[in-house]
Computed example of a mutant assay.
Amino acid sequence: MPTPNPQALDFLLTRRSRPAKTLTLPIPSADDLRPILEAAARTPDHGKLEPWRFVVLQGAALSRLAELTERRGQELALEPEKIDKAKSQFANAGLVVAVISSPKPSEKVPHIEQLYSAGAVCLALLNAALASGWGANWLTGWMAFDAPFLTEGLHLADGEAVAGFMHIGTETSAPPDRPRPDLDAITSWVNE
């Protein structure tokens, strides 16, 4: 018989991301953040390749990325509203953990499985932050896919990418729940 963990299941059934724009100070200290990162690093990684890594962004780093976002947005001739929205992700944040997808050469583990693992790290990090009592949100945005931004701003190597910008802070208000998928509409039971 399995040993249930009703508290963990209840958390997963009721978890809710907190919009990044509603997060404020205080933010987790390095000591507070460490167990959150440790929990995320326990994600199945398909062959112990660790095809992901973390970049913890705070203070001047976030200001620098906000400025880079504005400059790159202008260079790309994006709409001012789109630039401002993207810039605010960094300018108004106290703490962002960039989860970097960093696939490793492997004959046994396909590239796509390594990308899935990086996405799973994002969800594990998000849930660990929420379970620790922090507000948290998983964002990307056009900057996560802009090679010059990634090279200049985060010094990513060839083949690396941002799986998510994980915003963590103190929530100012709990958002209402949102409609969830109709489980019957998305589930097939195959018995033969």
Rank of each mutant, 00 (worst) to 15 (best):
residue 45 D to L: 06
residue 34 R to V: 00
residue 85 K to S: 10
residue 92 N to R: 13
residue 171 E to H: 12
residue 155 H to S: 12
residue 192 E to P: 10
residue 38 E to T: 05
residue 43 T to P: 11
residue 131 A to N: 14
residue 145 F to K: 15
residue 179 P to C: 06
residue 162 V to I: 09
residue 71 R to W: 13
residue 97 V to N: 08
residue 122 C to H: 08
residue 40 A to T: 07
residue 9 L to G: 03
residue 33 L to W: 05
residue 47 G to N: 01
residue 181 P to H: 07
residue 166 M to D: 04
residue 159 G to N: 00
residue 187 T to G: 00
residue 43 T to V: 13
residue 95 L to Y: 01
residue 181 P to S: 02
residue 62 L to G: 00
residue 100 I to P: 11
residue 140 T to P: 08
residue 149 F to C: 13
residue 21 K to D: 10
residue 60 A to I: 03
residue 66 A to G: 06
residue 88 S to G: 03
residue 66 A to C: 06
residue 9 L to F: 11
residue 90 F to M: 11
residue 37 L to D: 02
residue 99 V to Y: 01
residue 152 E to H: 09
residue 121 V to L: 04
residue 125 L to M: 09
residue 69 T to V: 02
residue 84 D to L: 02
residue 131 A to D: 14
residue 68 L to V: 00
residue 18 R to T: 14
residue 101 S to G: 15
residue 26 P to L: 06
residue 55 V to P: 00
residue 82 K to W: 12
residue 168 I to T: 04
residue 140 T to V: 09
residue 137 N to H: 14
residue 46 H to F: 01
residue 137 N to I: 14
residue 115 L to N: 02
residue 9 L to W: 07
residue 93 A to D: 07
residue 66 A to T: 11
residue 78 L to T: 01
residue 41 A to C: 12
residue 113 E to L: 15
residue 188 S to G: 10
residue 78 L to C: 05
residue 64 R to S: 13
residue 108 K to Q: 03
residue 170 T to V: 08
residue 111 H to K: 05
residue 99 V to G: 00
residue 164 G to H: 12
residue 38 E to R: 05
residue 123 L to H: 08
residue 36 I to K: 01
residue 162 V to H: 02
residue 28 P to G: 01
residue 97 V to E: 08
residue 117 S to G: 13
residue 189 W to N: 10
residue 73 G to M: 05
residue 116 Y to D: 05
residue 27 I to E: 07
residue 149 F to M: 15
residue 94 G to Q: 02
residue 109 V to G: 04
residue 108 K to V: 06
residue 183 L to D: 11
residue 151 T to W: 13
residue 88 S to E: 07
residue 140 T to H: 09
residue 102 S to C: 04
residue 13 L to H: 04
residue 101 S to F: 14
residue 165 F to L: 15
residue 124 A to G: 03
residue 1 M to W: 12
residue 48 K to C: 09
residue 12 L to T: 09
residue 113 E to C: 10
residue 84 D to R: 06
residue 90 F to W: 08
residue 88 S to I: 02
residue 109 V to S: 09
residue 111 H to F: 11
residue 132 S to T: 13
residue 141 G to M: 01
residue 41 A to N: 11
residue 76 L to D: 10
residue 120 A to V: 01
residue 122 C to G: 06
residue 102 S to T: 03
residue 131 A to M: 13
residue 149 F to A: 15
residue 155 H to F: 04
residue 54 F to L: 05
residue 114 Q to H: 03
residue 68 L to G: 00
residue 166 M to A: 03
residue 17 S to Y: 01
residue 129 A to I: 03
residue 44 P to W: 01
residue 189 W to T: 15
residue 73 G to N: 04
residue 190 V to E: 09
residue 189 W to E: 09
residue 182 D to R: 14
residue 46 H to P: 02
residue 99 V to S: 03
residue 80 P to T: 12
residue 133 G to S: 10
residue 89 Q to A: 06
residue 106 S to V: 14
residue 176 P to K: 15
residue 7 Q to T: 11
residue 147 A to W: 09
residue 73 G to W: 06
residue 108 K to S: 04
residue 18 R to Y: 15
residue 60 A to L: 05
residue 171 E to Y: 11
residue 50 E to S: 03
residue 156 L to P: 10
residue 100 I to G: 07
residue 130 L to Y: 11
residue 108 K to L: 03
residue 177 D to Q: 08
residue 145 F to M: 14
residue 166 M to N: 03
residue 48 K to N: 11
residue 38 E to A: 06
residue 91 A to V: 04
residue 125 L to W: 08
residue 106 S to R: 15
residue 163 A to W: 12
residue 66 A to R: 08
residue 72 R to S: 05
residue 154 L to A: 05
